[in-house]
């Protein structure tokens, strides 16, 4: 309720426009009933300020903003470096992909080292054979091509061998490359039977690859060892685990390797009288009783 004791605050509220409808009516009634209050109301109304519209802020232009997108310009040289690096990486990646696509997995490696086979095992097998045979291998893609070469006997022996058997072996393959088809039956653990069809096929593949590659350094006159020619693909093939390369028991592998060595020796001895004779001479000329033999990726020792 508005009284003479509190009317001033209502005057201020009225000036400031903060009175609600009901209070406003009561206030107007009170002011009408009290002229002195009305005069005082005029003074309060005079306290109201009016903004000076002539005052303007002069720095508006400074306040205007524009959203700008940051652009990072790399130096041209740096950009080129990145471009060149990206190009090289893309080229290498495409090269790898294309090369892998071109190499269809049609053939399986000739030799697949069974799990558990150790050098000591091979050495034991080799000790049961008296034939010095050195077998090298060259891996090309998914296919392993094995080359049977001379034994690791003293180098002084080899020229004599080559010379004596040169004439006889001219018509035979100079190197025996063997390539084993993927789906060959698993027979490595049974015997060392020579499968002529597969050998022929392997020889064809080898010949074709030899022609394609053309520059296999291994086919050189110095390395045309007669024994290499005799114990070529067939013996190596027979000795190797075939088919799906399931790991064989150790004894089966040992038997297979022993048969291999026997087959190699028999092959040489039965090749011709000249070869057999030279083999004996080789044996005599070998001063060392152990010959290190490298078979594919595996090394073992043959003892005489």
């Amino acid at each position: 309720m508005i009284t003479l004791n509190n009317y001033e605050q209502y005057l201020v509220l009225f000036v400031d426009g903060e009175l609600d409808e009901a209070t406003l009516e009561e206030f107007e009634t009170f002011v009408a009933a009290h002229p002195s209050v009305a005069a005082e109301l005029e003074l309060f109304q005079m306290t109201q300020l009016e903004p000076d519209q002539t005052i303007e802020y002069q720095g508006k232009k400074k306040l205007i903003r524009t959203e700008t997108t940051r652009r990072i310009w790399l130096p041209l040289a740096t950009g080129r470096k990145y471009l060149v690096a990206a190009g090289i990486a893309a080229t290498l990646f495409l090269g790898v992909v294309v090369s892998r696509m071109q190499k269809a997995p049609e053939l399986q490696p000739l030799t697949h080292r069974p799990q558990g086979t150790s050098d000591s095992t091979a050495r034991d097998i080799a000790s049961k054979s008296d034939l010095p045979v050195l077998i090298d291998s060259a891996k090309t893609g998914n296919t392993t091509v094995s080359r049977i070469s001379k034994a690791g006997a003293k180098k002084t022996v080899m020229p004599a061998i080559r010379k004596s058997l040169k004439s006889e072996l001219q018509n035979k393959p100079q190197l025996g490359y063997v390539q084993v088809a993927k789906d060959q039956p698993d027979s490595a653990n049974k015997d060392v039977a020579i499968r002529s069809t597969e050998i022929d096929r392997a020889d064809q593949v080898v010949a074709k690859r030899t022609e394609d590659r053309g520059a296999l350094p291994a086919i050189t006159p110095e390395r045309k060892n007669p024994i290499d020619s005799i114990v070529t693909a067939d013996t190596a093939l027979a000795a190797l685990p075939q088919g799906n390369h399931v790991t064989k028991p150790q004894q089966e592998r040992d038997n297979g390797m022993q048969d291999l060595m026997s087959g190699i020796r028999e092959k040489i001895l039965n090749a011709s009288d000249a070869v057999a004779g030279k083999y004996n001479s080789i044996k005599k000329n070998i001063s060392e009783r152990e010959v290190k033999v490298s078979f594919v990726n595996k090394k073992f020792i043959l003892s005489f």
Binding site: L49, P51, D52, I55, E56, Y57, G59, K60, L63, I64, R65, T66, E67
Partner: peptide, 24 residues
């Protein structure tokens, strides 16, 4: 509030804000 609205606020309120601050 984006750029246009900000700039609009500058044009609309800068004078009044300046008067208020100047008097204050």
């Amino acid at each position: 509030m984006h750029e246009k609205e900000y700039n609009s606020a500058v044009r609309e309120w800068s004078d009044r804000l300046f008067r208020f601050v100047l008097k204050s």
